[in-house]
Amino acid sequence: MAFALPVWLAVQEELLRHDGAAPSSFDDFDDDALFQMFHLTRPCIAFITDAVCIRMKTVAMNKPALSVDAAVMVALNYYAHGVSSTDVLQRLGSSQADFPALICTLSAVIAGMADQFISFPLLRDAKANVACSIRRVCGIPNVLGVLAPAHFKIRASPYEKETFRSFVNTLGYTSVVSQFICDSDGNILSVEKCCVGSTFEQELWDSSFKGREMEEELHGPYWVIGKMRAVSCTTSLRSSPSLPRL
């Protein structure tokens, strides 16, 4: 009986560790299947699910047909592939006809949290810190972020030929595209509204809020660097000098 108390304490610790932790809809996937299905790692999915759960408590909604983590599964799977996978349908036992409204609801909830996680450096010290970190990576001074388009695959109707062609990007598939700015750690600093996939990068920049702010020198002597070019506060993307690929 000498080990009775330590064993009892160990069992209690294990029980307390899992107390209140309900099984997740994502537990059925191993890590490889999880990434293939959602293009995200398990910690990333857990973070998103927890954030959405907290947000959902403050949003007035009718009682959902699925649990929050199951609803997040539907939305993330759709974001990853542009269509709901059969595997997800089978695991949740739901009709695909219910998914569009669910995805719209979850998208609105996630979009409503954007200000908590996406912010462009505005104060002098914040700008200096971002610029210093980026300079350590690439050696270019006064850089506030790295600029790039992000394409999100969608399904467009081929029967509407003109509309369909506008969604076909240079990689040959249909998408919507948005302009992203990130820092050297991968934190998203700015996201611009989506455009059709055929939109050129120059056009994205010219019509973006951050592009206009840079042209009007609202951020002082700082740059935003792109894939092959640099943009200063006084120079447009079109006329700026080319830089080596990072």
Rank of each mutant, 00 (worst) to 15 (best):
N77G: 13
Y78W: 09
Y79A: 08
A80R: 00
A80N: 07
H81D: 06
V83S: 11
S84P: 09
S84D: 04
S85I: 01
D87H: 03
L89W: 02
Q90D: 12
R91N: 02
L92V: 02
S94P: 08
S94A: 09
Q96Y: 02
A97M: 08
D98H: 10
D98V: 13
F99H: 03
P100Y: 06
C104E: 10
T105P: 02
A108P: 01
A108I: 00
A108M: 08
V109A: 04
I110L: 13
A111Y: 06
M113R: 02
D115H: 14
Q116H: 14
F117G: 11
S119H: 14
L123F: 09
R124E: 13
D125Y: 03
A128P: 00
A131K: 00
C132S: 14
R135C: 04
R136W: 04
V137W: 00
C138F: 02
G139R: 06
P141A: 05
P141F: 00
N142I: 06
P149D: 03
P149M: 05
P149Q: 05
H151C: 06
K153P: 05
I154A: 10
R155F: 12
R155E: 14
R155L: 14
A156E: 08
S157E: 14
P158T: 13
P158R: 11
P158Q: 11
E160C: 14
E160K: 11
K161R: 15
K161Q: 15
E162N: 12
T163S: 15
R165F: 11
F167I: 07
F167S: 04
F167G: 02
L171E: 15
G172I: 10
Y173A: 02
Y173H: 14
T174V: 11
V176P: 01
V176C: 11
Q179T: 09
F180M: 15
D183N: 15
D185A: 13
L189P: 04
V191F: 01
V191I: 15
V191W: 04
V191H: 00
K193Q: 15
C195W: 02
C195N: 04
V196Q: 11
V196R: 10
G197A: 04
E201A: 12
L204T: 01
W205L: 03
D206H: 07
S207A: 12
S207T: 14
S208I: 01
F209C: 05
F209Y: 07
K210T: 04
R212A: 09
E213Q: 13
E213Y: 03
M214V: 03
